[in-house]
Design a binder for these strands. Structure first.
Length: 143
DNA sequence: GCCAACGTTGGC
DNA sequence: GCCAACGTTGGC
């Protein structure tokens, strides 16, 4: 089971909205690198939710409740037959007991190659096992 | 197919 | 509000 990190602008769609709704379809991803990560997700994977804007912190954990599928609003396949604009559905797992800020992540040398730091504009990325464990520990999230 | 111009994102 | 980074678009 893999873990990913998803960025969102909290004024647009925040972790609290997901907790309130109980489920959501994570769409709107159009960046090529981010879509590759979306397509590699599988049902049962987990995602750390990161808020950009004023918060700039990991705020919660959610579960991927579907395999990637075509965005009904933008259907289409890639040359490989994968969904062009891949989306998944999510369900909330837990809010972070302690939000892990971007500043804290940047201050820790173990994150120096983490895409959140090195590729500021990437909105969906896989999180390796080591950093996943570390982030969950820092956030007070279940492992 | 290359490259310049432009737009968008996100941190400061 | 500004600026840097980077992706995308459009002309050639």
């Amino acid at each position: 089971m893999a873990t990913y990190l998803l960025k969102t602008e909290p004024s647009d769609y925040c972790f609290a909205d997901l907790q309130k709704a109980g489920t959501c379809r994570w769409d709107g991803v159009s960046n090529a690198a981010a879509l590759i990560a979306m397509r590699s997700m599988r049902k049962g994977d987990e995602v750390l939710v990161y808020h950009t804007g004023d918060e700039k912190a990991v705020v919660g954990l959610a579960k991927v409740t579907s395999d990637p599928f075509e965005d009904p609003e933008q259907p289409g396949k890639t040359a490989k037959g994968e969904p062009k604009f891949a989306v998944v559905t999510l369900a909330p797992v837990a809010a972070a007991k302690s939000r892990v800020t971007l500043a804290a992540i940047k201050a820790d040398p173990r994150f120096k190659e983490f895409p959140l730091v090195t590729q500021g504009r990437l909105s969906v990325m896989a999180v390796g096992k080591t950093l996943d464990r570390l982030l969950r520990k820092m956030a007070g999230l279940p492992g």
